[in-house]
Nucleic acid binder design. Sequence first.
RNA 1: GCUUCCAUAGCUCAGUUGGAUAGAGCACUGGUUUCCUAAACCAGGGGUCGCAGGUUCGAGCCCUGCUGGGAGCGCCA
Length: 623
Amino acid sequence: MELRAVSRPHISLLGDTRRGWGENPMRAQIVDIINKTLSSLVAKGELPEAVSEANPPFTVELPKNKDHGDYATNVAMLLAKPAKKAPRAIAELLVANWVDPDQIIVQSEVAGPGFINLRVNPHALLQIIHQVLGEGDAYGLAKESNGEKVLVEFVSANPTGPLHLGHARGAFTGDAVARLLEAAGYEVTREFYINDTGNQVLVLGRSIYARYQQAHGHDVELAKDAYPAEYVKNIATSIQDQDGDKWLSASEEQWLPYFVQKGVQTNLAQIKKDLENINIPFDSWFSEQSLHESGKVAGLIEAYASSGMAYRAEKPRGAEERVRREDSKAAQYQDQQAGGLFLETSRFGDDEDRIIQRANGTPVYLAADLAYHIDKIERGFHRMIDVFGADHGGHVPRIKAGIQAAGKDHSDLEFLLVQMVRLMRNGQELRFSKRAGQIYGIDELVDEIGPDAARFIFLMRSANTQFDFDLDLALRQSNDNPVFYVQYGHARTTTLLRRAAEASIPFDPKSPPAVADLEGLRLPEERDMLKKMAAFSDILQGAAKASEPHRLIYFCQELIALFHGYFSKYRATERVISDDIPLTLARLSLVASVKQTLKNALNILGISAPDHMQAPDAPSEDE
RNA sequence: GCUUCCAUAGCUCAGUUGGAUAGAGCACUGGUUUCCUAAACCAGGGGUCGCAGGUUCGAGCCCUGCUGGGAGCGCCA
């Protein structure tokens, strides 16, 4: 009899083991044993048929408490209801009837309210080493594509200036999410949406023109909302060098498009350079302008109008009922909406209807944004992730509503809102005023603390919590600094392997000893590392599904903490490299596995795994 | 006022989608190197998980309300 339901368990640690994803070999084997045992118990009439249909999302996880064995499962508690039996009774049944031909489970006991604590055969754990070393750089990563296409849109900074610190968290987060998804088996496209039209770029063009006039000795003042910074002057002088004074006598209709284009081009080139410098590639640069030129924006507006989703009015319906703050900018701009075309986003959960086209027929940015998202949907991705700054969170309901109003489905569209970061130096917040032209660029940050530390610290925290970026801490090349801790651990593993080679120990990570010859690895710390490494693919899949790179950072820290502890504790007694050659080979295999797993995890995050660390107090060898 | 994110150790934050006695780093106190990298390790103190209800075998996690903080509430993007 085939137990359909329990042969397809939902595992809370995620990672469907049937689909060629990297899998946790230990967990997969235990899940299999549980399923087979349940199946046989139902067949023998010990458990009711209802158990087969329950399909409970049981867990097989590493218990926090070491007294609880190697692995623990809550399957008995989840089956209590369908089986109409006490959790502990079900657990007892399982424990007494394991269908375990390979003898993976060497000890099991019922604990607490009905947990089953398991101890597994050391042999089974040792196979992890062969898996890690055999798969090398591919260990933990998806073996093949899962066939799902994902679009990650991130940064999408206005081409009105270089990237600054406000963009950094979104940039690193978006890149890490993209890397995470790739490693988890998705086909990822990284896209940058360029707002190369609209008011902001006009302001930019006028700012450049004002600087251009000043460069020719004209005493003009910058507009209140102008961009004053140095890079604007540089663009102005480059136009001056190229074209001389030919634009001074031109009318605004003549010079504005040219200055806008020059500004956008220059800034975009700078943005691309900044992103390349921090190793963030894009597959696609999507121009807003192109949506206008292709008629997609106009077409969408037309579609809204003809489907009755948009109406022409003096003001949006329902807006007068809305309580506005006295200083509301909406109130300020309300009269400008008169005669515009309004989209009924309020029918789909938005606060009020939104204008999409002015009285004079020109579309507003929301229309382009909607055309862009609908274009995305039509490109046929399984998942679309927008990485937004928290200050753009207000867009989300409008975009969703607009998509629904167009008769499309937004359920595959996810918004990852990256919260604000406060940059701290000397215990005080650093504030940068764009108005005053102060900019702390991403390039400056990376110059100051290095690319790995910048990435690590931005990725260390869950994206939806605010945090303080402590520049002093990031700068300190000391043990306060978590990125060094992890990288130092990797360097330590490398050193061990190098020492072994220097001692002419015949170890080759590509052909580790047979499992039977790894049996010397009996220390509890050694088993802990094996279990942790086995969980890598589960962590990766969970992080990818949830778009949470910080889970991988924690994994790196936890794995290397086990290694550091192991190394220090036994350095005087159970050394990795000893006269016992078989044991040395076994331990080197373990060390090589830790190195490989850590390297793979860091690589997914875009952080380097150095083989050497320069001690901070040591004199530099280069001088 | 509305939307949204957040509130866990002195500080910065995790908490594996509802599991067992809530964890880590920093800071503090004490200890560890004739020995494979001390950028490391070990030990110790430190908690009403913002408050109050609810859901169930079980809640830091889910629901409701409240308090406090961030962000947003424009034809800007």
